[in-house]
Design a protein around this nucleic acid. Structure first.
Length: 494
RNA sequence: GCAGGCGUAGCUCAGUUGGUUAGAGCGCUGGUCUGUGGAACCAGAGGUCGGUGGUUCAAGUCCACCCGCCUGUACCA
């Protein structure tokens, strides 16, 4: 007699189920972010979670299959569709499609889930929420500077105090110029950028190894390096640890590089852009929150100039006390080529996204987000099993008065104790009881569960029961709604 | 992908040098119990010991491969 094999209930990795407390926290975060974004003049626009893969620019080079890392499938026309991996690429598609109807510069915001098929980790999910703002059609650096200020204001609106986060700014053109000037081969530039990006995580020694022959990590795994020569490594590590234009020569070769860097079009333009952003930041009074950081790389695909990243400076630890690295909780930059892919004309654009899910995970771990959930409904207990209709009437009266309420729907044979236990687990503010005694006097008993919960520490059971009895009171049947309303008001600020 | 660690009930875990019918606590369901939340007592449900193959008289235990999870690392628009 083989039993039917039971299906294993399991959640795919990198995805999470979310309970009432987490949903409430997200709602509060989203609302706080929305207020700031609207204050900056952005208007809401939403696009769907699915786009044509080519609109996202996500085909593998020289293949007609989508890139790994993005969830893709074919529809019945055999056209490739993908789940969006950020909110920027779909916005570019939207702008291109509605270009003639939009007032430029077009400033909009949106939030929603995005999807990445990557290895998950702490604060890294395969479905996660982003909150994004973009200014399309504005070439000026003022638009980029504003993104940095928006990022800072948003962090503070989320309750992260000044000094506990930093907005870092860099410009892709600078490192491009540096690499060209010191003669990094084109095919090695990607490796170099990846190495530079790891400075804050692995430290300068590891980065130098990655720029040179390679590095072996703690588990013994070896990562191939970029194979630069010692002088190139020296120059790069100086650049990424200081301001690029502060490099001091140690040899004629470095002197030549410095001179060339000053004349390099890309680097020159990058420095000029950073100075413009700096000026805006200073004028607006944000220089204590926004900082130039020559190691910010921000992915590799569509950014063309300024890039920004928001980092939490608070140290996070997991439940076992081990430090956890969350990486950036937001980022963005200028993507002057993204919209023009769809159009015959250049369309400059810049944007910024908050990683809501990652930030929430970090704040939860820091204990900055309450685990506390919203209060549950008032629970009307079933005392006399044959009077369920009466109890239902009370529930309806409470609901009609806009009070969350429910009838005890469990096994009605459960005695009062069991029903109160249920109400307690639901987080009910109070329970309504009407047994024969109350009924005879046209009364109902309201038991204040929040008050009673405070008594849980009492050791002596008799004493405990006595105190519990004091946390309840009888009212006339027709005063039920009014009395419950008063009780809820009493607990409102607790 | 690579390296290491770990997989026994819904959860946390025990299980001896390989030895009968794989256990505990918590939780769950029912009962003691139709007048009060934290309790107590009783009963019950819940396991192909991650999977497959091998060694053996005998495998939760030993071996191989696979799968999954965790950590590091790589990739990360």
């Amino acid at each position: 007699m083989a039993k039917p094999s039971k299906l294993k209930a399991r959640l795919p990795r990198g995805l999470t189920d979310r309970g009432p407390a987490e949903i409430a926290a997200t709602r509060h975060m989203v609302e706080a972010i929305r207020v700031v974004f609207e204050r900056y003049g952005f208007e809401p626009v939403e696009t769907p979670a699915i786009e044509y893969t080519d609109a996202l620019g996500k085909f593998l080079p020289d293949q007609d299959r989508p890139n790994e890392g993005v969830f893709s499938f074919q529809d019945d026309d055999e056209q490739w569709l993908s789940l969006r991996y950020d909110l920027t690429a779909p916005l570019a598609r939207y702008v291109a499609e509605n270009f003639q109807n939009l007032a430029l510069p077009y400033r909009s915001y949106r939030y929603g889930y995005v999807y990445r098929n990557e290895k998950p980790g702490p604060g890294r999910f395969r479905q996660f929420m982003q909150f994004d703002a973009d200014t399309v059609g504005a070439p000026t650096m003022a638009a980029d500077a504003e993104m940095c200020m928006l990022a800072a204001d948003t962090m503070e609106a989320l309750g992260i105090p000044r000094g506990s986060y930093v907005v870092k700014v860099n410009n892709r053109k600078v490192l491009d110029g540096v690499m060209n000037v010191i003669g990094v081969l084109v095919e090695k530039q990607l490796t170099v950028l990846r190495a530079v990006d790891k400075l804050d995580r692995l430290g300068i020694d590891a980065v130098r190894q990655l720029l040179g022959p390679g590095r072996k990590d703690d588990s013994g795994d070896f990562t191939q390096g970029a194979g630069l020569d010692p002088l190139q490594i020296e120059y790069l590590s100086t650049v990424i640890q200081h301001q690029p234009n502060l490099v001091v020569g140690k040899s004629t070769e470095v002197d030549t590089w410095n001179k060339n860097l000053e004349e390099n079009e890309s680097a020159k333009s990058g420095f000029a852009e950073m100075r413009e952003i700096e000026a805006s930041i200073l004028a607006a009074g944000y220089s204590d929150r926004v900082r130039i950081d020559p190691t910010v790389i921000r992915g590799l695909e569509y950014y063309t100039g300024p890039v920004f990243e928001v980092e939490l400076l608070l140290e996070t630890k997991d439940e076992k006390g081990r430090p956890v690295r969350f990486g950036s909780v937001g980022g963005g930059g200028r993507y002057d080529g993204l919209v023009s892919r769809f159009m015959g004309q250049p369309v400059p654009a810049t944007g910024f996204s908050i990683g809501v899910s990652r930030l929430q995970a970090a704040l939860t771990m820091l204990g900055k987000l309450g685990e506390k959930r919203e209060p549950g409904p008032v629970v009307v207990t079933v005392f006399d099993r044959d009077r369920i209709a009466d109890y239902q009437r009370m529930v309806s009266a409470l609901r009609a008065a806009d009070i969350r309420a429910e009838l005890y729907l469990g096994n009605p044979k459960n005695n009062l104790g069991g029903q109160l236990k249920y109400a307690d687990k639901r987080g009910a503010p109070c329970a309504i009881i009407q047994g024969g005694d109350e009924k005879a006097r046209n009364e109902v008993t309201i038991k204040d569960l929040m008050l009673g919960a405070a008594l849980a520490g009492i050791e002596d059971r008799a004493e405990y029961l006595k105190k519990q009895a004091e946390a309840q009171f009888a009212v006339k049947e027709d005063a039920l709604v009014e009395e419950v309303r008063k009780l809820l008001a009493r607990h409102k600020d607790v």
